[in-house]
Amino acid sequence: MDGPLLAPDERLGDATRTSALPAGPAEFFADLGNMSVALPVLALTLAYVTWRTRQWFPALVALVTMALVPALVVPLQAGLARPGPPPMAPATGFFPSGHTATAAVAYGLCVLLLRAVFRTRATAHGCVVVNAAVGLGLVRQGYHWPVDVVGSWCLAVLLLTAAAWAISRSRRRSSSGTPRR
């Protein structure tokens, strides 16, 4: 692999891995990107918001959006075959980061869904902080390069934008009295 971002990406990744950032908290935040953590958080949010709002369409949008994460990430990883950082190399399939995409989309969907119940920006700010910590933890622990994380954030923005559009459209229809299909 070669390109203009390769050298700066490797320098930043190496600097982060060898930095004084504590490994314990970095591993904790990296683990927040695991499906075994992010999916139960999303499931609890789905259940709570569906129960509170009595609307099932936002939950359906969230489920489809979350299902798109592995459907998009796995083929990209296989096709691009980017080698991982030193502890993981020569293994390939690190771009985009599946853990970062899982965390960003799952926790982003939680924020989108909770907007129907709580009218606050604190959840969005918390989501950004958690996802930044997940990305930093993944790079610090040597699981991914920085560009792997940034690529997943870009993918998450696309998926969350589409989900937000679908959810807001359904809420506008249901609040205007127009019958939904």
Score class of each variant (00 low, 15 high):
127 C>S: 10
93 G>Y: 04
118 F>M: 08
66 M>V: 12
114 L>E: 03
91 A>K: 13
79 G>D: 10
82 R>N: 04
102 T>A: 05
106 A>H: 04
81 A>D: 08
25 P>E: 05
108 G>H: 01
147 V>R: 13
103 A>L: 11
26 A>P: 02
15 A>N: 11
143 Y>V: 08
57 F>T: 13
117 V>G: 12
26 A>T: 06
150 V>R: 08
49 V>E: 13
104 A>C: 11
95 F>I: 04
122 A>D: 12
131 N>G: 11
84 G>K: 13
63 L>Y: 04
21 L>W: 03
149 V>P: 01
52 R>C: 06
47 A>E: 08
167 I>C: 00
5 L>G: 08
135 G>R: 00
164 A>L: 15
164 A>H: 09
6 L>W: 13
87 P>Y: 10
33 G>K: 00
24 G>M: 14
163 A>F: 06
102 T>F: 06
39 L>T: 14
151 G>I: 02
164 A>E: 10
59 A>W: 00
112 L>V: 05
27 E>S: 14
162 A>R: 02
29 F>P: 00
17 R>N: 07
96 P>W: 02
25 P>H: 09
107 Y>F: 12
121 R>I: 09
65 T>A: 12
179 P>L: 15
140 R>F: 02
19 S>F: 10
101 A>W: 00
110 C>N: 01
122 A>K: 15
139 V>H: 06
177 G>C: 02
96 P>M: 14
154 C>G: 13
116 A>L: 12
116 A>P: 05
15 A>K: 05
169 R>Y: 06
19 S>D: 03
38 A>C: 02
32 L>V: 06
43 A>V: 05
121 R>E: 13
24 G>P: 12
38 A>D: 01
22 P>Y: 01
75 P>E: 06
9 D>I: 00
35 M>W: 15
152 S>R: 04
139 V>W: 01
164 A>D: 09
65 T>F: 10
9 D>T: 00
167 I>H: 05
89 A>K: 10
47 A>V: 08
40 P>M: 02
44 L>H: 08
113 L>S: 03
72 L>G: 07
30 A>L: 12
34 N>K: 15
80 L>A: 07
